[in-house]
Design a protein around this nucleic acid. Structure first.
Lengths: 154, 154
DNA sequence: GCTGAAAGTAACCGGGG
DNA sequence: CCCCGGTTACTTTCAGC
């Protein structure tokens, strides 16, 4: 079912990750191929779900989203019902950019982008009102050292 | 210096976030404007750095990157020199997708994408060999509940 | 599976309202 | 500031090899 990815595919993906707006001609030249084969590979990888959404990266500060928190969540409710409600809450909130279920002591980690600490508290209050949570630790980011969507393809 | 963003700009950004490949005409229609003004706004926001890189989101599993770790780092070396070396190491490693300096007990958080636990260990060993670290906790992601680059624009 | 060309579509950039 | 139209450039498809 899964598409097989070879070295040429990876080169193409690398180019698309770096700049999805460049023309097929440019990509073909850079990867040492030509338009049609590159286009066919891209089409296949899109259909196979290897290539997903095409998007732009926006500057959060310019949009007034100056605060970023990582939230460590511990729960004692491990029932399927509770989990379902919790996941639904996370997915419906646009300020939650990322959410993972973890192995070990801590059950979930969230990455939350908001205007300021006040806005985080409003998010937090709304969340714990919606679903019971045993323990929460919020880590405030002081400096974003690195933030990339580019996966390592070598 | 910073570009002023109004409601129309936000609508345009929303469209670009959702699908950066759609045509100017489509965007213009959806936001209730027309080509020229939309194009001018996009150009301004690009120049102003509000709109950054245009990219594609790839499926990590399809590329064999099936493990995701969040790494909590505590240090006791708070000298500028150590920090410089540490940041350089993080930025140079492509498996580090995200790195933040934090306020509080924990000094740094990293998000690392690798093939498997073995590959994580290799990354970890290489990192602590390069720079001294007081304490490290690795949190293994079992399930990616949500992962988006879309900032909330309302 | 590549080449090259042909057709359709969109970006870009003027002059005018 | 926005509308419109022309030009250039790109994407997408397809017949031939």
């Amino acid at each position: 079912m899964t598409v097989q990815i070879d070295a040429m595919d990876r080169k193409i993906l690398q180019q698309l990750q770096e700049d999805a707006s460049q023309s097929l001609d440019d990509i073909a030249r850079k990867v040492g191929s030509s338009k049609t084969p590159v286009w066919n590979r891209i089409r296949k990888m899109r259909e196979g779900g290897v290539i997903g959404q095409q998007t732009v990266i926006l500057d959060p500060d310019a949009l007034g989203l100056e605060a970023c928190f990582f939230v460590l969540v511990r729960t004692n409710a491990h029932e399927a019902d509770w989990q379902k409600k919790f996941l639904k809450a996370l997915r419906s909130r646009p300020e939650v950019l990322e959410a993972h279920r973890l192995a070990g002591e801590i059950d979930y980690i969230l990455k939350v982008r908001v205007k300021n600490a006040r806005a985080y508290d409003e998010f937090y209050q709304a969340l714990i009102k919606e679903v019971a949570i045993y323990n929460v630790t919020a880590l405030l980011s002081m400096e974003e050292i690195k933030n990339t969507t580019m996966l390592p393809l070598d």
